[in-house]
Amino acid sequence: MTEVLSDSFALAGRQMRHIRRMPEQLLGITVMPVAFVLVFGYLFGSAMQVPGQGGYKEYIMAGIFAQVMLANLTTTAIGVVEDLNNGLVDRFRALPISRSSVLLGRTTADLVLVGWTSAIMAVVGYLIGWRAHNGVLQTLAGFGLLLLMGFAMSWLGALVGLSLRSPEAVSALSGVVMMPLAFLSNAFVPPEGLPGWMRVVVEWNPVSAVVSAARDLFGNERGASSGAFPSEHPVIAALVVLLALLAVVVPLAGRAYQRAAARR
């Protein structure tokens, strides 16, 4: 076990070096989310009607955080595809190291990056007026839950990358999957005004559960619960969904790693 951890650590360190080598990459992954915070907070915020006193700036932050976590799927998937195609996966697999450490190293490094992005976003959000109202512990719990989502999406991304094996396919698929997941949720728009069937979809979208949970933990208002379970108990619903996703995806990604690397 300690071997797995130290190998993963060394492999995660590899990605940290990439970032040190090319800081513009870090800038790249940070600029978009920060731009989202500004665009949604200022531009759309002036036109949006949301529940509670905090206004759209308070409402939107949890949504943008969740979207960044969702996008972590693509980051990991692309990284895995790169390693597969340039032969590094073969190199690592031919070493007497634990085979889980390669994926664990990558998902950990991607988690660190997404954590960094969140920190920057939080600062920018604070500067434009976003506040967390429930104290340090609950705020940290909110970020913890969001990062758990980022980690789960990262493992899902590893599975996707290992299955598709091409960066183009990964981009295409993640666009198709992530758009509806993000926009058919309560991340950007309160579900109250939606037509009936769409409202049901939004309420049961797992992304909504995470967003609602984060809003609750941050103390940002999210309007009245509709009575659906994920809306009534968002923290439990989010934890269950994310842990279940990890429980399914981690072993599947591990198996895909064994086979995908073996196929060529």
């Binding site: 590899r14 080598r21 340039n86 032969g87 590094l88 073969d90 690592f92 031919a94 070493l95 190291i97």
Partner: peptide, 28 residues
């Protein structure tokens, strides 16, 4: 007990030559 050199030069392009070798050494 084996070394493998595949058809593709399997090196991490964004690490230096030295870092590539050190990474393998660390993993070993």
């Amino acid at each position: 007990n084996v070394g493998l050199t595949g058809q593709y030069a399997a090196v991490d392009e964004r690490l230096t030559g030295r870092e590539n070798l050190q990474l393998i050494g660390t993993l070993l």
